[in-house]
Amino acid sequence: MLLQRIIRALALAFIAVAGQPAIADEAQVARGAYLVRAGGCMACHTVPKGGQPFAGGRGMATPFGTFYTPNITPDPDTGIGKWSDADFLRALREGVSPAGEHYFPVFPYTSYTGMTRADALAIKAYLFSLAPVAAPRKAHEVAFPFSWRALQAGWKQMFFRPGEFRPRPGQGEQVNRGAYLVRALGHCGECHTPRSPLGGALIGLNLAGTADGPDGEKVPNITPDRDTGIGTWSAEDIAEVLASGTMPDFDNVQGSMAEVVDDGTSHLTDEDRLAIATYLLSLPPVRHGNPVSN
């Protein structure tokens, strides 16, 4: 504990020298640490098996090429140490870098746009409390024309709808909390929704699974369809999967979902896991793909 406090103090001193405001609200940092878990940031921004946490460099294979995640530690040269609050909010809400470049939608800003300002800044506060790691960004391996960032402006016109999540009247607090976690923070639809040839999410098949997920993984249908989704699962079954990775048939989740559980959902509160489950079971069932247990 003492060593962690010393490292954090040095990191804050470094940030102050770099011209960034010091972090004064311990509660905000703690809240940000929780939200980082809910947002799945560690798994994507850390190279498996020995990579520095949040230092980026993890490759993600897609039909358009392989994208590498960036360093999101507060290193001023290779990370986000020079980012202002406005820079951070613009990245999450608009998919635009501090330099004004469009991010590729492999970065789930299309979901993060729904995040509240308070939650986004709490995540930034936590990330800026970490020790900086010098880790230059790896170049994406993406062929022309998909490598042109300028083309992302057109992609956004077709597929991106910015805006903060708004609770739906009449849904109840638990369902709305689950909707926020699934649709904004947890960005579940980014993996669990099939996409068009141009990479846009097929809204009519939201959360209905795809055979062509990240890194070529088969991603299951998590709508409450009884034949191809999770319609035979109870809310408690879903919450248990999020807590331990154990499915109702006593098999365990594999691949990237195992990382989601280990690095993310297993650290959430029981209340938030149950909220996610309740929201998923409130959705219209969509018949698509193969059963989750396959």
Rank of each mutant, 00 (worst) to 15 (best):
E164H: 09
A143E: 14
E141R: 08
S129F: 06
K82F: 05
F104D: 06
P105H: 08
K82P: 02
E164Q: 10
P169Q: 08
W83M: 07
Y103S: 06
A131K: 04
D119I: 06
S111V: 02
G163H: 09
Y103K: 15
I80G: 00
Q152F: 09
G154F: 03
L127Y: 01
L89G: 02
D87I: 10
W155Q: 13
A134V: 15
G95W: 00
G95C: 02
P167K: 02
S84L: 01
G100I: 05
P108L: 01
Y103G: 09
R117H: 15
F146M: 08
P169A: 10
P108C: 02
A91T: 13
D85G: 03
A118N: 12
G114P: 04
M115P: 06
P145G: 07
A122S: 11
H102K: 06
R168F: 14
F88T: 02
S147V: 12
A86D: 15
T110F: 01
F160L: 07
Q152H: 09
P108V: 07
R168W: 11
F128R: 00
R90A: 15
E164M: 13
L151E: 08
S84T: 05
A153L: 13
L121Q: 04
R161V: 10
A91C: 09
A86F: 10
G95V: 00
W148F: 11
L151T: 13
L130K: 00
A143K: 14
D119C: 04
V96P: 04
V106F: 03
S97A: 08
M158G: 11
S84A: 06
G154L: 14
G100F: 06
A122W: 02
V96S: 15
K138S: 11
A150P: 11
H102P: 07
G79F: 00
K138D: 03
F104M: 11
W148K: 13
Q152M: 08
T116G: 08
A86Q: 15
E101I: 07
K138G: 01
W83E: 02
Q157N: 10
Y126D: 08
R137P: 09
V106I: 14
T116L: 00
K82D: 07
P167R: 05
Y109K: 01
I123Q: 00
F128M: 03
R137F: 06
F165W: 06
H102I: 04
F159Q: 13
S84K: 02
M115I: 12
F128C: 04
F107S: 09
F146K: 07
D87H: 06
